[in-house]
């Protein structure tokens, strides 16, 4: 396969990734966010953060499955969009939902595993976003890779956060859990696959 123009691919990602936020603004200005607009924004930004998180985790499995490597170059961009939506998600919670009532919020975080798990996931993404540039990569060297492995933990916390939110019908969060498990499964499969087999496959 011919290597695509990365700049063009990145431009397309920028365009597509800004659709969810543009849609929220559009619906917001048209007063069309439903009966519970705060919940709508909270759920929408949370869901898109999770989608971008899962997308960033598909990079290695697709490399393993296809042998292609060019797309790894867009992983950082996708990861940063994840951080963008996750930040909006948290800002919605802190500002729109709790209106900076920190005492109430702290109770909420401590009393409800769902919030605690979500909050932990967000905190763990901050160092990842902060070290996502070339400078930090060079500076941290081998530690960088180890640090960025926490993304797996973030992903687990994120789906658990979603599963805990739902009162009864787990269907939707289970779809995302299944995707995550498949992505993990592919990695584990290739990790344990004997080297020679991998070589002949290539």
């Amino acid at each position: 396969m011919k290597k695509p123009n990365i700049t063009a691919v990145k431009a397309v990602i920028w365009l597509l990734a800004s659709i969810p936020i543009a849609r929220l603004f559009w619906l917001g200005f048209n007063n069309d966010l439903g009966a519970n607009p705060i919940e709508f924004v909270e759920h929408s930004t949370g869901l898109w953060a999770l989608i971008f998180l899962l997308l960033s985790l598909t990079m290695t499995p697709t490399r393993l499955l296809t042998g292609q490597v060019w797309h790894i170059q867009v992983r950082r961009l996708i990861g940063l969009w994840m951080f963008f939506y996750a930040t909006l998600h948290v800002v919605t919670y802190v500002w729109l939902d709790f209106n900076f009532l920190f005492d109430v919020m702290i109770d909420d975080v401590l009393e409800h595993p769902r919030i605690l798990v979500g909050f932990a996931a967000f905190l763990l993404t901050i160092p990842l976003a902060a070290t996502s540039n070339q400078y930090m990569m060079k500076k941290l060297k081998s530690k960088w890779k180890a640090l960025h492995k926490t993304v797996y933990l973030v992903a687990i916390l994120a789906v658990v956060h979603f599963l805990l939110l739902v009162k009864k019908d787990l269907t939707e969060p289970l779809y995302y859990t299944a995707v995550l498990l498949i992505l993990f499964g592919i990695r584990i499969y290739y990790k344990h696959k004997k080297k020679p087999v991998m070589n002949t496959a290539q």
């Binding site: 729109l96 209106n99 109430v104 109770d107 009393e111």
Partner: peptide, 22 residues
Amino acid sequence: VSHPRWTQSSERPIGGGLFGGR
């Protein structure tokens, strides 16, 4: 009396819009 999923000490009134708060 708290609930494991939702805070029960405050609530969001529907109809308050995006900035309606709790």
